[in-house]
């Protein structure tokens, strides 16, 4: 029963997310609306962690399985991407390295500044 009510709540947020995606003329996925709403509800105390946590844990744990079939969809697109596969993956590699470096360095320098600031004060 615990799972039922928890899943019901999560389904409610999903429905609102889907509705918002249809009503707001922005290219934002329903999952993003739902995620932000659930996060806001948790922060505001509208919903308590214990009221969704168990069902959410289960759903998160099955996500990797749900992605197998979309990944198999690459078979359909194979003709289209065949000639670009190697440059595509090289570009993915390159951007992973630049993203890693930029995200890490910026956080590091800001954290150092804050620490220096704290010590000065």
């Amino acid at each position: 029963m615990k799972y039922l009510t928890q899943f019901l709540r999560i389904t409610g947020f999903t429905l609102v997310g889907e509705l918002l995606q249809r009503l707001i003329p922005l290219p934002i996925p329903a999952s993003v609306y739902g995620l932000v709403l659930l996060f806001a509800a948790l922060c505001l105390g509208v919903i308590k962690l214990e009221q969704v946590k168990d069902a959410a844990g289960f759903l998160i744990s099955i996500l990797p399985i749900l992605f197998v079939s979309p990944a198999v969809g690459i078979l359909e697109n194979w003709g289209m991407i065949r000639s670009a596969v190697i440059p595509m993956f090289l570009l993915a590699l390159l951007s992973t390295i630049t993203t890693f470096a930029i995200a890490g360095r910026i956080t590091q320098s800001l954290r150092k500044k804050e620490e220096d600031h704290d010590q000065a004060a």
Binding site: S31, L59, L66, S69
Partner: peptide, 25 residues
Amino acid sequence: YSAEMGKMSWLMTPASICVAIPMYE
């Protein structure tokens, strides 16, 4: 295969939304 598995794709949105919970913690 894709059509049959597509029937389960509705599960993906609620599962994705749940990521809000670790984010909150």
